[in-house]
Amino acid sequence: MPQQTELPGYVLITGASSGIGREMAISLSAHYRLILNGRDAERLQATQAACRSPERQLCWVRDLADVGTLSETLPPFLEQNGATVTGFVHCAAMLDVLPLRSITIGHAQDVMNTNALAAMEITRLLMRKNVNHKALKSIVFISSIASQFGAKGFTAYCASKAALDGLMKALAVELGPEVRVNSVLPGGVRTPMTQAMFDDPVTAERLTKDYPLGVGLPSDITSAVAFLMSEQARWITGHQMVVDGGRSANISA
């Protein structure tokens, strides 16, 4: 078994095939070697191709809704590639705006699995000494201001993001001081996941009104994550960092 110091350190980014995760990957590839995770192999490879030094990045194709089998796939993937993970950014998320009456338990479980439980399970695996050799230093979960506030049609999503932030705090307390754990809470950012909301003219107009600084860019979120992963944030853990153009401060919204 190679010694931990000989293995290259990677940042694992889930949800890297589109939206914030894709932007995150392209941006962080300037500073880190990456393991890109997504469900869609083709789109994941397209993200890889857009990264700095694509050949140095790894692709791990996996649907995180299938939480129960992650322990059978992630450890072998790391071993086969001789990789250790020093940072973990969970950008994968499912959002389906549905009235409560249309939600099935199966769907709600998929949302909870992808958005929250996969983050817990991946963290658990990365903390196993014989899997990741104590390499993990920093975790950032992409949560949402929806973890703090409700909205029509968002029951499963809000529940899952609140769960994710609760998980973040518990992990920060349990895994500190060796590992820092934080969440970034974006407001409305235009991505493929949120496209339907922005395409609806009524919703789009309300979004413009509600956001003191207007709607956000994926790069606003990647800046916050890059900061939290850096040495400059060495004393920040257990924090829900709101990056939302002032939306959650706005009572008129």
């Binding site: 920040i236 709101v242 153009g245 002032g246």
Partner: peptide, 12 residues
């Protein structure tokens, strides 16, 4: 894109 927030820097 950050305003109206409280950024906590407190070692957890």
């Amino acid at each position: 894109w950050i305003t109206g927030s409280v950024l906590v820097v407190d070692g957890g």
